[in-house]
C-alpha cells in the first residue's frame, strides 16, 4: 500500500538505525565511529531530497544550497558563540527561511518543473560563486572570516546544550547522528501516512487533478520544500560538526548531484532506500579512493550507468519487486480469477 506510512518495514528500519546508534560505539573503533557519523549526516541530507522528490515530485537540483547554508550557519555561529546549540537551531532555520522565500516565488509563481530544477540549481551555484569570492579578509560575519575558497576551518564539534566547551565525545556524536537520522526518517514516514502526506503524494501524481479536488498544490509544495530544506540544514550542521570544516564546495554541482545520485540509487519514493544507497555509495567512494585499483571517476560512472540501466527503480523498490514476484509465484496455485468492478460486466 503506497499510502501506508508506518508499516512493518519502516518500523524495522527505524529500529535498525536505533540499534546502530546505541550499539555502534561499543563495537566500532574511533575511526569507524567518526566516519559513520559523517556518512550519517550526509544520509540525513538525502532523506530531505528523497522526500520532496519522491513524495511531492519536486526535483530540486539545488538541494545542496540548503545543506550548505546549514553548514555555514553552524560554522559561523559555533565559532562566534563557542556554543553549538543555537548554531544548530540557526542551521535549521536559515535554510527554511530561504526555502519559504524561494518556494513562494517558485510555487505561487507557477514556475514549471524544469525551470524549478534549473532555478534551484542556479541558486546553489550563485551561493558557490559568492562564497568563493569572499576570500578578502573584509568578508566576515559575526567577526568570523568567511574564508572564500579556503572555507572555514577548525569548526568546533557539538557540545552539550548550554555547556560551553563540554564537547560531545565522538561516540556520543555518533549516537546522536544516528538517532536524529532515525527520528527524521520516522517522522517523514509518519507524515507520508497522514492526511497531509497522502494529499502531498497526490500532487506528485497529478497536480491538476489535485487542485480540481480543492487542494492548493502551491501550499502543499511549499510546506514540503521547507521541510526538506530544514532537514538539509540540520544535515549540513551535523556534517560540519563532524568534519570541522566547511567551504564553498558544499554548494557545488558535485554536492547536489551526489544527493540526486543517492536518491536515484535508493529508489524513487523510498526514504530508506536513499539512506541505504547513501551509505553504500559513500563506502564505495571511500574504498576505491584508497584501493588505487581503478580510476575513481570510472567506477562511479559505471555505477551510475548500472543503476540507470539495471536497476532503474533503485535498490529498495527492486528488492521489494523481487520479493513480490517470489511470493506471487508461491501463491499461484491457489489463485482465484481476478475481479475488478465486480458488479459490472467487464469490457470484452
Amino acid at each position: 500500500m503506497n499510502y501506508a506510512g508506518m508499516n512493518a518495514g519502516s518500523l524495522t528500519f527505524t529500529a535498525s538505525l536505533v540499534v546502530v546508534a546505541l550499539g555502534g560505539p561499543s563495537v566500532l573503533d574511533t575511526f569507524q565511529v567518526l566516519q559513520l557519523s559523517a556518512y550519517s549526516s550526509l544520509a540525513l541530507g538525502v532523506v530531505g531530497l528523497a522526500f520532496v522528490w519522491g513524495i511531492l515530485g519536486i526535483l530540486s537540483l539545488g538541494h545542496a544550497a540548503f545543506f550548505g547554508i546549514g553548514a555555514y550557519a553552524y560554522a559561523i555561529l559555533s565559532i562566534a558563540q563557542g556554543e553549538s546549540t543555537f548554531a544548530v537551531a540557526a542551521a535549521i532555520l536559515a535554510p527554511s527561511v530561504l526555502a519559504v522565500c524561494l518556494g513562494y516565488f517558485l510555487f505561487y509563481g507557477r514556475v514549471g518543473d524544469v525551470y524549478l530544477s534549473v532555478i534551484t540549481l542556479c541558486v546553489s551555484l550563485i551561493l558557490f560563486s559568492f562564497m568563493n569570492s569572499t576570500a578578502d579578509v573584509s568578508y566576515t560575519l559575526l567577526s568570523v572570516p568567511l574564508g572564500g575558497f579556503n572555507g572555514i576551518s577548525a569548526v568546533p564539534p557539538l557540545n552539550w546544550p548550554g555547556f560551553v566547551g563540554d564537547f560531545l565525545t565522538p561516540e556520543a556524536t555518533f549516537s546522536l547522528c544516528f538517532l536524529l537520522l532515525a527520528a527524521v526518517y520516522l517522522a517523514l514516514q509518519f507524515l507520508r501516512g497522514t492526511r497531509l502526506g497522502r494529499i502531498m503524494a497526490s500532487v506528485r501524481e497529478n497536480e491538476r487533478r489535485c487542485e480540481l479536488l480543492g487542494y492548493d498544490p502551491r501550499w502543499l509544495k511549499l510546506v514540503g520544500f521547507v521541510i526538506s530544506a530544514a532537514i538539509a540544514g540540520l544535515a549540513g550542521a551535523l556534517f560540519t560538526a563532524n568534519t570541522g570544516y566547511v567551504g564553498p564546495t558544499v554548494f557545488d554541482l558535485g554536492q547536489s548531484s551526489q544527493f540526486i545520485l543517492w536518491a536515484i540509487a535508493g529508489g524513487m519514493g523510498t526514504l530508506s532506500g536513499a539512506i541505504i544507497a547513501s551509505f553504500m555509495l559513500q563506502f564505495l567512494a571511500s574504498f576505491i579512493g584508497t584501493s588505487q585499483l581503478f580510476n575513481t571517476s570510472l567506477v562511479f560512472g559505471t555505477v551510475i550507468i548500472f543503476f540507470v540501466y539495471a536497476l532503474p527503480n533503485g535498490i529498495v523498490p527492486s528488492l521489494q519487486g523481487l520479493l513480490r514476484k517470489l511470493s506471487r509465484l508461491a501463491r499461484r496455485q491457489r489463485r482465484r480469477p481476478e475481479v475488478i468492478g465486480d458488479s459490472i460486466k467487464s469490457t470484452p
Binding site: 573503533d29 574511533t30 566516519q35 568534519t243 570541522g244 558535485g254 571511500s286 579512493g289 575513481t296 571517476s297
Partner: peptide
C-alpha cells in the same frame, strides 16, 4: 588516498590515515 577533488573526502581520509 585519492581526494577525488572532493573537499569532503579530505577530513575523512585524514581521519582514516591517522586512526586506522
Amino acid at each position: 588516498y585519492d581526494g577525488q577533488s572532493d573537499i569532503k573526502k579530505f577530513p575523512q581520509y585524514a581521519q582514516q590515515a591517522a586512526l586506522q
